[in-house]
Design a protein around this nucleic acid. Structure first.
Lengths: 216, 216
DNA sequence: GTAATGTTTTACCAACCGGTCAAATTATCA
DNA sequence: TGATAATTTGACCGGTTGGTAAAACATTAC
């Protein structure tokens, strides 16, 4: 029988898992660089080293490939925020959140750019995820931060904008990598820039959220 | 004689200025939303309210349109950084830089997204500008910040990463607008979010760069 | 007014796009 | 081994893409 992959309910063969893996890897490359509309199936097939019809045997449409990729990546992308622990020490929780986000920017820049492209272009394929699971998770963690502030453990601040600030400053090093390297110049474009960024951002956020003597 | 616009050296007619304006306005809309490769001439022509060949009479290629747009926008985009004044008070200079960048994110989100798209996709059309004028300007302002730190006016910090942090946190509200709105929820998605962001970011950066008693 | 120039449109093209089909090839397993 | 199912490919299709040619139309200069 000839059934396209998507129509089957169970994963069957070893070869299927391998090829799907191979395709999603290539798709990540292409979608992250050109966005959904700017990417072509031919291009992905080329990167994956297989023919276009073969690729379409495993994913029936370009949309299906993109969706599979989003589903797989979104979950792991939110892990650092999930680890944010209400019981921990506020300063070290925030520091390690920043560090984890920076590590992801360094080690998984394509995943970051995939989302950046998607959101930049109006999030046409993931708005449900943003309004649902993402918002829920942020709401939960924002409450944690608000409690910390109320308990006098950190300065009073808008927890949502704090989270936005951590997201933007860390993901910047993945999404705007070219610009960062160009501005730093060749001599400072080694991996050391992530160390420097970590040092700076920890200083900024720790001091920025500190309780000053006699205030707050 | 029939010469495409680009071949002429002088701007001639009133109609030319109007139409080029009209086209670039439409192109900004489309390129900012879909990136270069994801945009089509037909789409731009549609938004501009003219036929495709007519549009190609003023700009001979899609690339020419994009380039004209970049050239026009890049300059004004860097204005806030140029205003950064070495003679001014460090804290208020940084605050007003943040405020200006936030105002641009609010008032010119398409311009921000145009660059974000371009850089995300590897800056294939503007890398010269990044390595040249942009780097030069940042180098100059980084030196100003370094001098402030050395003079004990602000905390010691890496000036380049400080600038990156200001860029990313402010532009976030333009580039990731959909996400920001979705996470904040409907009731907080009014224009007030820019006020809240300004308050939070000023607090973060001012406190984060403060000189602590007895240190630095 | 009319001739020259500037502008717009219609019709078109070759290349590319997402996707289909049927046949060929390969893997699986009794 | 052979039958059956899974995988891969080349040829192809209708629609879209960036861009062109030439003629129709409008504007300006004299």
């Amino acid at each position: 029988m000839v059934l396209p992959r998507a129509a089957r309910t169970q994963r069957r063969t070893r070869i299927q898992e391998e090829k799907e893996e191979q395709i999603l890897e290539a798709a990540l490359d292409v979608f992250a660089t050109h966005g959904f509309r700017g990417s072509t199936i031919d291009q992905i097939a080329d990167v994956a080293g297989m023919s276009k019809p073969n690729l379409l045997y495993y994913f029936r449409t370009k949309e299906a490939m993109h969706r599979a990729l989003i589903d797989r990546v979104l979950d792991s992308w939110l892990d650092p925020l999930r680890e944010f622990d209400a019981e921990g020490n506020p300063v070290s929780e925030i520091c390690s959140y920043i560090r984890r986000k920076l590590e992801m920017a360094r080690d998984f820049p394509r995943e970051s750019r995939l989302f950046a492209n998607e959101i930049l272009q109006g999030a046409p394929h993931i708005e449900d995820e943003l309004k649902g699971p993402l918002k829920a998770l942020v709401d939960e963690k924002a409450e944690v931060i608000r409690a910390w502030a109320k308990a006098g453990k950190i300065a009073k601040c808008d927890p949502y904008h704090l989270i936005f600030a951590i997201w933007s400053t860390t993901q910047h090093y993945a999404d705007f990598d070219v610009q960062v390297r160009d501005v730093l110049g060749e001599e400072r474009s080694g991996e050391g820039r992530f160390e420097d960024a970590a040092r700076f951002l920890e200083q900024l956020f720790v001091k920025g959220l500190e309780i000053k003597n006699g205030s707050d």
